[in-house]
Design a protein around this nucleic acid. Structure first.
Lengths: 235, 235
DNA sequence: CGGGCACTTGATAGTAATCAAGTCCGGTGG
DNA sequence: CCACCGGACTTGATTACTATCAAGTGCCCG
């Protein structure tokens, strides 16, 4: 019988999953393995729906790998994207106690692995390890910051500042340094960007065109953008 | 020496304050009185600034009585109102651990009494009574719901739906039933409403005018609105 | 009664939505 | 390897909405 250097049993794999998640970062190994026992995993393919508006989610969901978009449908039937979550992010924390309907859809943007923790279990966990609650409060706080900024920039009316804002967000999350600037692999199509900032596809095209003419960015194909002048975006 | 039926010592008054606050509603009397010892009270007059953007708040603040608006300044210098808080609401929960700068201003809209709890004390409290953390997570969840709805309606572009939305919010919070419909005492001037939904004063006037012509609402002076057809606002 | 402030109303101009072609690109099949 | 097809993107023309500027009105308060 050969000894493995890395344990591959289900529990230990889950533990790896749990360890990777910021909200559990304060726990010690023993606590992590208790956690791990509560985790169920699941895998979704690209474009698969993870949560549908109106359903009643019974678990807290943590993304282990991959990327999802959270959105609602407007009255006119367009989707309004609220968040893009990736590895380490969680959702479903609303309705922790009350069995509320979800007010949003969650869809995998690529092959995505998730960890689920039953809400009852998670509640017990919160009582036992209040630090987790504090971490969650902090994370929610920073999400609210972003939402508030979005509202501010949507109130400002100028589509330009919203585009600048989203480009900066993408740069921070997906950008890589490059000799001439920051190279950003766009996670969304033009239409997706439009649905994020609440405008029309065509307008996104036009505004990006203007930014390119001004020498602020350079479009490389449809899915990459090279940001040449970061400061211009920040105003 | 006469015995009073109601104790008026500082501690007990604070306890009253604490009891009134939803996030402490799970605590028993003994716990409440421990809480009360940590509370400092303060009073602000109308238009007085409670928190200024860029300052570093050191306390969690709970409103005991009165009403405040939370807002930021846009690049053009207009204020963008994010929340209106009243009795029982709290703020300053961001930056619970990290000493971040406030990203918003808070101003009293009328004479307002607040309770402050030092952040260090509050952290200890969270560790000791994890239920408080859960309550906060829930409250933040419902605030995020509202923010998300705002984003959705701002993405929708139609000023009308934003006005309808804010009227419904006001109706829920400040409305009283009346023979013909719901009478709403507006907490904000036309300009305030405009700053809330991100539009111009004049546009608010015009749209309210249209709603009145359509028989959906009836304006009574400048500070009251009688909603005749609730369903029309909900679409 | 008069002044100031909040609100309303009107006219104009600018911006983005919408409708409508047209272009570019990747993939597929011959 | 090339030609074709479809989807995503760009570009153009028109229309609709709302911000802005500018008077004008009404109301509260001294």
């Amino acid at each position: 019988m050969k000894e493995k250097s890395v344990c591959n049993c289900g529990s230990c794999q889950n533990q790896l999953c749990a360890r990777r998640v910021p909200i559990f970062s304060g726990l010690d190994p023993a606590e992590l393995s208790r956690m791990a026992a509560l985790i169920t995993k699941k895998r979704y393919e690209k474009n698969e729906l993870i949560i549908m508006e109106g359903s009643i989610p019974e678990s807290l969901i943590i993304i282990e790998k991959g990327q999802v978009k959270v959105f609602r449908y407007t009255h006119e039937g367009k989707e309004q994207i609220l968040y893009i979550f990736s590895e380490g992010d969680f959702f479903g924390e609303k309705n922790l106690l009350k069995r509320h309907e979800a007010t949003y859809n969650v869809e995998a943007m690529e092959a995505t692995h998730i960890c689920m923790i039953n809400k009852k279990d998670f509640q017990k966990l919160l009582i036992e390890y209040p630090e987790i609650g504090i971490k969650i409060i902090e994370e929610l706080g920073s999400r609210m910051d972003k939402l508030e900024s979005s509202i501010q920039s949507m109130g400002t009316k100028s589509i330009e500042s919203r585009i600048n804002g989203i480009l900066l967000d993408f740069a921070a999350k997906y950008g890589r340094k490059h000799t001439k600037g920051v190279l950003v692999e766009l996670p969304l199509s033009r239409e997706g960007i439009a649905n994020y900032i609440g405008t029309a596809r065509e307008t996104v095209s036009r505004k990006l065109g203007v930014l390119q003419d001004e020498g602020v960015i350079e479009m490389i194909g449809n899915k990459k953008i090279l940001i040449l002048n970061m400061r211009a975006l920040e105003e």
